[in-house]
Design a protein around this nucleic acid. Structure first.
Length: 265
DNA sequence: TACGTCAAGCTGGCCC
DNA sequence: GGGCCAGCTTGACGTA
C-alpha cells in the first residue's frame, strides 16, 4: 500500500433521503409517525462512510385548542334533511333513533326549510367534553359513543362524525408539522453538503500542493468514526494542531439519538 | 365578498 | 356483508 493506493481515495458525497428498510405500515387509527424518510448526508473517504441520519423527532401533538366561541344553534342533524343512506336510516331506526328523538333539537326553521342543510354548531361544553374524550382515546367503541352522545345530548352519529373530523384535523396538523420538519432537515443537509463539498475541494487541493502528506503510510492514518478525526500513528496524540486531515466536527441534527458515538474517543 | 372553519355526506378500503 | 375508518367533498356560517 503505497502512495498510489492512498491517492486513489474514493471520495463520495451524497445528499438524499433514504427509505427505511422495514415496512412501516401506518396504523389504521391514523397515528402518523415520522419514519417514512430519513434524510441522509454521506461523505465517503477510503471506504469509510460519513453518515448523518436524522431520525424522527418527538413531534408533539397538542391538538386540542380549537374549541372557540360557538353559537348555540342546534338544528336537526343532516340526516334529518338530507336523503341519507340506508345505513343512516337504520341507525336512526334503532335504539339511537330513540335517543335522537330525545336529544335532537329541531328548530322551527326546519319545518319550512324542507331539505335545507343547516349548520350545526356544538356549544362550548359539548366541544370541551368531546376534546376531553378525544385526548383519552381518539377512537370510540359503540358503547363509548352511546355514552358520550347521551352526555352531550347529541346523536351517536354526530359524535362519530366529530371524532372522524377531529382525527382528520389532527392528521392534517401533524402533516404540516412534518412538512416543516423535513424542510428544516433539507436546509440543514444542504448546508452540510455545501460545507463538505468545500472541504472536499480543499482536500483535493491539499493533495496536490502537499505531496508529503500523501506519502504517509495509510496504515498510520486512522479515522475515528465518532469524532471524524484522523490520528497519525507515532506522531503524538495532538492531532488538533493544524492537522490538515482534521475534519470539522460533525453537526448533530435535532439531538439525533442514532448518531454513532465511539467509546474509543 | 372572499376566505376559513367545521359539521356532515359520500365513497372505497379494510377487517372480522 | 356489516361496521368502521380515512379521505375527499359539500354546504352553512362567521369574519376580516
Amino acid at each position: 500500500m503505497g502512495l498510489d493506493d492512498f491517492c486513489n481515495i474514493g471520495l463520495d458525497l451524497g445528499l438524499g433521503f433514504t427509505s427505511p428498510t422495514d415496512n412501516h405500515r401506518p396504523s389504521k387509527l391514523g397515528k402518523t409517525t415520522m419514519g417514512s424518510f430519513e434524510p441522509s448526508l454521506t461523505l465517503g473517504l477510503c471506504g469509510e462512510t460519513y453518515s448523518q441520519r436524522v431520525a424522527g423527532s418527538e413531534l408533539n401533538n397538542k391538538g386540542s385548542n380549537e374549541s372557540g366561541e360557538l353559537l348555540y344553534r342546534q338544528d336537526s342533524g343532516a340526516e334529518s334533511f338530507s336523503n341519507g343512506s340506508v345505513k343512516r336510516e337504520r341507525e336512526a331506526g334503532s335504539e339511537e333513533g330513540e335517543i335522537e328523538r330525545v336529544s335532537s333539537r329541531v328548530s322551527d326553521e326546519d319545518d319550512d326549510g324542507a331539505n335545507a342543510r343547516k349548520k350545526l354548531r356544538l356549544n362550548k361544553d359539548q366541544s370541551a367534553l368531546l376534546e376531553e374524550s378525544f385526548k383519552i382515546h381518539s377512537t370510540l367503541n359503540p358503547k363509548q359513543k352511546q355514552e358520550l352522545a347521551r352526555k352531550l345530548n347529541l346523536r351517536p352519529r354526530q359524535v362519530e362524525v366529530w371524532f372522524q373530523n377531529r382525527r382528520a384535523r389532527t392528521k392534517l396538523k401533524q402533516t404540516e408539522v412534518d412538512c416543516e420538519f423535513l424542510k428544516k432537515c433539507c436546509e440543514t443537509l444542504t448546508d452540510e453538503n455545501r460545507r463538505l463539498q468545500k472541504e472536499l475541494q480543499e482536500l483535493k487541493a491539499l493533495k496536490l500542493s502537499h505531496p508529503f502528506y500523501m506519502q504517509l503510510p495509510a496504515a498510520t492514518l486512522t479515522m475515528c468514526p465518532s469524532c471524524e478525526r484522523i490520528g497519525g500513528g507515532g506522531n503524538g496524540n495532538d492531532n488538533t494542531n493544524k492537522n490538515p486531515f482534521t475534519m470539522a466536527p460533525k453537526p448533530h441534527f435535532f439531538n439525533n439519538p442514532f448518531t454513532n458515538s465511539s467509546a474509543a474517543c
